[in-house]
Design a protein around this nucleic acid. Sequence first.
DNA 1: CTGAAAGCGCTAACAG
DNA 2: CTGTTAGCGCTTTCAG
Lengths: 340, 340
Amino acid sequence: MVTIYDVAKEAGCSPATVSKAFNNYKSVSEKTYKKIMEVADRLGYTPNNSARALATKKTWLIGVVLSQELHAGITHPHFSEILQSFNLRVSEYGYDIVFISKRFGDKASSYLEHCLYRGVDGVLLAVGAKFREEIQCLLDSDLKCVSVEGLYPNVYTVISDNRMGSLQALEYLYFLGHRKIGHIACPLDSVAGRERFEAYKEFLEKKGLEYNPKYVVEAQDYTHEAGKVAALEFLQKTFDDLPTAVFVAYDDIAYVTMTTFQEKGVRIPEDISIIGFDNIKLSSFMTPPLTTIEQNRMLIGQKAADVLVSLIEDKPIDEPYEIRIPTRLIMRNSCMRISD
Amino acid sequence: MVTIYDVAKEAGCSPATVSKAFNNYKSVSEKTYKKIMEVADRLGYTPNNSARALATKKTWLIGVVLSQELHAGITHPHFSEILQSFNLRVSEYGYDIVFISKRFGDKASSYLEHCLYRGVDGVLLAVGAKFREEIQCLLDSDLKCVSVEGLYPNVYTVISDNRMGSLQALEYLYFLGHRKIGHIACPLDSVAGRERFEAYKEFLEKKGLEYNPKYVVEAQDYTHEAGKVAALEFLQKTFDDLPTAVFVAYDDIAYVTMTTFQEKGVRIPEDISIIGFDNIKLSSFMTPPLTTIEQNRMLIGQKAADVLVSLIEDKPIDEPYEIRIPTRLIMRNSCMRISD
DNA sequence: CTGAAAGCGCTAACAG
DNA sequence: CTGTTAGCGCTTTCAG
C-alpha cells in the first residue's frame, strides 16, 4: 500500500504538504502541487479513508435503514428507485451508502450501534411508522437523519404529496362522470396508506358523496398476494353493486386488481374504471395501460440527498421539515367517461 | 465518543485487555470479560471501525460493482434480488456492502481507486462483459473478486445454469408437441443472452429441427420498451407463419410479448405457447400465468457471499471457478399441448 | 508556503 | 492472564 509518506519522499516534501495538496488547501504552491500529483499518479497512490476518518471523524458514509416490514429491502420497487437516485446524488458529494441492519441482535439500540460502528455521517430512514421504536434511538442520538417514509417531529422528511395525488386521481374520475368510487387501500399503518385513504374520505365529503365502507378494502401488505386477496374481497363485497370506478392506492395492487377483475369477467374500463398510484415501470404495459398518479421518486431521492448533505455539512436548509413532492396525473386507458 | 480507554479506566484494566475482550480472545479471564462488558454497556461503548480498520487493514466492507449497462442499478429486478440475498448473507459474517461507482471520473482505474479508498476486503462483480475493460484493473489487482454475471478466467462466478434452464424450457415445449419454436433473446452480449441462445440452437440440432433465423429476434436491452420492440418485430417477421411456441429469454420481455401478442389478437396459449426465463414476482400474476424457468437468485446471492467470504478469510473453497446454480421448470398456463 | 509533531481509536507483539 | 509500547495513514495546529 502506497501512503502519503511514499509520495512525500518521492516528491521531496513532507507528508503534511501532501495531505494539504490532496485536500485542496490553497496554501500549497502551484509547483509543489503539480509535483505531488504527478508523483501520486505515478506511484498509484489512493488516500486511505479509514485513516482519514480516524483523524477527522468523518467517514463520508451514509447509513440507510430500510423497512423490514416490506421484507423486500433493496428489491422494493418504490424505495429501490428512491435509493438509486439518492445514492447517485450523494455520491456526487463524495459519500457512499451502507445498509444499516440490526447487526447486533435485537437490542433496541441495534441500529444505532451499527451506525456508530461504521461512524456514518448521516442516516437515510426508509422505515414505516410501525417500527418507530426501533429507530427511536437513532432519532434521539445526534446523528443527522432524513426520512423518506415515516413522519417524525423535527426530522426532515421528503415524501410525495399523497393528498394532492389522491385528489388528482379522484377529481379525474369525478370529471369523467364517476360518482360511485371505491378504494383499495395499501396498509393503513403506512403514511401512504393512511394519507391516501384520508384524501379519499375528504374527497367524498367535499363532493357530497356518501362514504360506503362496502367500497373500501385494505391490502394487508405490499405483495401481489395481498393485492390478490384485496381485489377478491373487493369483488365479493361489491358484486351485486359494483362501483363505476376504483381508486387503488398502489400500482402493484392495481395490476393485480385489474387481472383479477378481468378473470372474473369484469371488463376494464367498460365495466369499471381503475386508477392507480405510483406509476411503476410496468404501468404503461398493463392491459389496458394503467391511468395512474406519478410519484417523482427521482426527485425524492435527490431532495433527500441534498437535505441530508446540507445537514451533515452544516449548510443552511431552506425547507420545512415536511417536504412534499408534487405528483402528476398520468392518463392512460384504464379509465373511461361514463354518462348515467 | 466513548473509547476503549474510557472503558479500560472504568473497568480498571488496560485498553489492550478491553480490545482483547471485544475480539473474543480466550486469554481474557471470565471475570474481567464480564466486568468490561458491563462497563462498556453502561458507558454505551461501540467499537470504532475506522480505527480498527487502520490497525488491521480490514474494513469489513465489501464493494459491489453494478452494471451501468442496465442503467437500472439497484432497481434491476434480477440483480437487486441477488444483491438482497448477498447482503443478508455477508452481514451474517459481519460485512457491510458499499456500492462502487466511478467516483473518480472516467479514469480506467476508477473502480479500483474507489475500492482502495474504501479499503474493501472484497468485491462483488455484477457487470456485463461489455464493460470488461473497466473492471480489468480490479481483476488485475489483488482484491478478492466474485462475479455473478460475467465469466472471467480464474475468477469465481456464481451464475444460473442457463443451458440447463433453456433445455428444460425447450424440452417441455417439445414434450407438449411443439416443433416450430421461436426465440426472443435478451441482448446477446450478455452471458445470459448468449448461453440461452446457444442452448436454443443446440436443442434444435439435437432434435433434428431446422434453425430458422426468421424465428429469432434479439431484444436490444432489458427494458420493457426494448421488449415491446422485439415482440413487434417477432410478430412482423412471422405473421404469415407463426411458430406454435416461443421461448422468451427473460420474463420481463415475456410479459410484454404476451400483452403485445394479445393486443394483436394472438391468443395465449391457444394460438401460441410462451415460456419465459427468470420467474420474477410478476410471472404468476400474468394473464395467463407464465410458465417459466426459475432462477434461484437467493442461492446465487448466498453462494456468492459464501465464496467471497471464504476467499477473504482464506478458507478453503470446495468449488470450481464456475459455479452453476440449477434452474427449475415452473409450469403455469402459458403453454399448451398441441397435436398436429 | 512548508514541515515537525502529536494524536485520532484500535490492535498486536512482546514482556511480565 | 494482563499491560506496555509502538504503530496503522492521515490531519492539524503551530513554528519556521
